[in-house]
Lab assay of single mutants.
Amino acid sequence: FDIYVVTADYLPLGAEQDAITLREGQYVEVLDAAHPLRWLVRTKPTKSSPSRQGWVSPAYLDRRL
Rank of each mutant, 00 (worst) to 15 (best):
Arg63Leu: 15
Pro45Leu: 05
Trp39Asp: 00
Arg23Ile: 10
Glu29Ser: 05
Lys44Val: 15
Phe1Met: 09
Pro45Gln: 09
Gln17His: 13
Val28Arg: 00
Val28Tyr: 01
Val6Thr: 04
Asp18Trp: 09
Leu65Trp: 14
Gly14Glu: 15
His35Val: 04
Ala19Asp: 08
Gly14Asn: 13
Phe1Tyr: 14
Arg52Cys: 07
Leu37Tyr: 11
Arg23Lys: 13
Pro12Arg: 06
Gly25Gln: 02
Pro36Thr: 06
Arg38Lys: 10
Thr46Leu: 06
Ala33Asp: 10
Pro50Arg: 06
Tyr4Cys: 05
Leu22Cys: 02
Ala34Lys: 13
Asp2Arg: 10
Leu11Trp: 14
Gln53Val: 14
Thr43Asp: 02
His35Cys: 09
Val6Ser: 02
Glu24Arg: 15
Asp62Gln: 15
Tyr4Asp: 00
Gln17Arg: 11
Asp9Ile: 03
Val41Phe: 01
Pro45Gly: 13
Arg23Ser: 09
Asp2Asn: 11
Ala59Gln: 12
Val41Ser: 00
Asp2Cys: 13
Ser57Asn: 15
Thr7Phe: 04
Ile20Tyr: 06
Val6Cys: 10
Gln53Ser: 10
Asp18Ser: 07
Glu24Met: 15
Leu40Ile: 02
Glu24Cys: 13
Thr21Lys: 09
Leu37Ser: 11
Gly25Trp: 02
Val5Ala: 04
Pro58Glu: 02
Ile3Gln: 06
Pro36Met: 06
Val41Arg: 01
Leu31His: 02
Lys44Pro: 10
Ala34Trp: 07
Tyr27Gln: 09
Tyr4Val: 03
Trp55Asn: 02
Leu61Lys: 00
Asp9Trp: 03
Leu40Phe: 09
Ala34Asp: 09
Tyr10Asn: 04
Gln17Tyr: 11
Leu40Pro: 00
Leu31Asp: 01
Asp32Asn: 11
Leu37Ile: 06
Ala19Phe: 12
Ala34Met: 10
Thr21Asn: 09
Thr46Met: 07
Glu29Ala: 06
Asp62Ser: 15
Lys47Pro: 14
Arg64Thr: 13
Ala19Cys: 08
Thr46Ser: 11
Trp55Thr: 03
Leu13His: 13
Ser48Met: 12
Gly25Lys: 02
Val30Arg: 01
Ser48Gln: 12
Ile3Tyr: 10
Arg63Asn: 09
Pro50Tyr: 05
Ile20Pro: 04
Val56Glu: 00
Arg63Lys: 14
Asp2Thr: 10
Tyr27Thr: 09
Ala33Lys: 15
Leu65His: 12
Ala8Gly: 07
Asp18Cys: 10
Ile3Leu: 11
Ser57Asp: 15
Tyr27His: 09
Ser48Leu: 12
Ile20Asp: 03
Ile3Ser: 05
His35Phe: 08
Leu65Pro: 14
Glu16Leu: 09
Lys44Gln: 14
Leu11Tyr: 15
Ser49Gly: 09
Pro50Ile: 07
Val28Glu: 00
Val30Gly: 00
Ser57Met: 05
Pro12Leu: 08
Thr7Cys: 10
Pro36Gly: 06
Leu13Glu: 14
Ala8Lys: 15
Pro36Tyr: 04
Thr43Phe: 05
Leu65Tyr: 14
Arg38Pro: 00
Val5Pro: 01
Ile3Lys: 04
Ala8Glu: 09
Gln26Lys: 02
Gln26Asp: 14
Asp2Glu: 12
Gln17Gly: 11
Ala19Thr: 10
Asp9Gly: 06
Asp9Lys: 06
Pro58Tyr: 02
Pro45Thr: 07
Lys47Arg: 12
Thr7Gly: 04
Gln53Leu: 11
Val41Leu: 01
Lys44Glu: 09
Pro12Met: 04
Gly25Val: 01
Arg42Met: 05
Trp39Lys: 00
Asp2Trp: 14
Gly54Asp: 02
Tyr27Gly: 03
Trp55Ser: 02
Leu61Val: 03
Leu11Phe: 15
Arg64Val: 15
Phe1Leu: 09
Ala15Met: 13
Ala33Gly: 09
Ser57Gln: 05
Ala19Asn: 09
Thr7Asn: 11
Pro58Asp: 01
Val5Trp: 07
Asp9Met: 05
Leu22Tyr: 01
Glu29Pro: 00
Asp18Met: 07
Ala15Pro: 11
Glu24His: 10
Arg64Leu: 15
Val5Asn: 02
Pro12Asn: 08
Ala19Met: 10
Gly25Thr: 02
Ser49Leu: 11
Ser48Val: 10
Thr43Asn: 02
Gln17Glu: 14
Ser51Thr: 09
Phe1Pro: 10
Arg23Thr: 10
Arg23Asn: 08
Thr21Ser: 13
Leu31Arg: 02
Glu16Thr: 08
Ala15Thr: 15
Gln26His: 04
Tyr4Pro: 00
Lys47Gly: 13
Leu65Glu: 14
Asp18Val: 04
Glu16Tyr: 08
Leu13Ala: 13
Arg38Phe: 08
Thr43Val: 08
Pro50His: 06
Arg63Gly: 09
Arg64Ala: 15
Arg64His: 14
Ala59Thr: 11
Leu65Ala: 13
Lys44Met: 15
Leu31Gly: 00
Ala34Cys: 11
Ile3Thr: 09
Glu29Asn: 04
Arg63His: 11
Thr43Cys: 06
Asp2Tyr: 14
Leu31Ser: 01
Tyr27Ser: 06
Val28Ser: 00
Asp62Val: 14
Leu31Glu: 01
Lys47Ala: 14
Asp18His: 08
Tyr10Gln: 03
Pro45Val: 06
Thr43Gly: 01
Gly54Pro: 00
Thr21Arg: 11
Tyr4Glu: 00
Arg63Gln: 10
Leu13Thr: 15
Ala8Pro: 02
Asp18Ala: 06
Tyr60Leu: 06
Leu13Ile: 11
Arg23Val: 10
Ser57Tyr: 04
Arg52Thr: 11
Thr7Asp: 02
Trp39Thr: 00
Ala19Gly: 14
Pro50Gly: 07
Gly14Pro: 15
Pro58Asn: 04
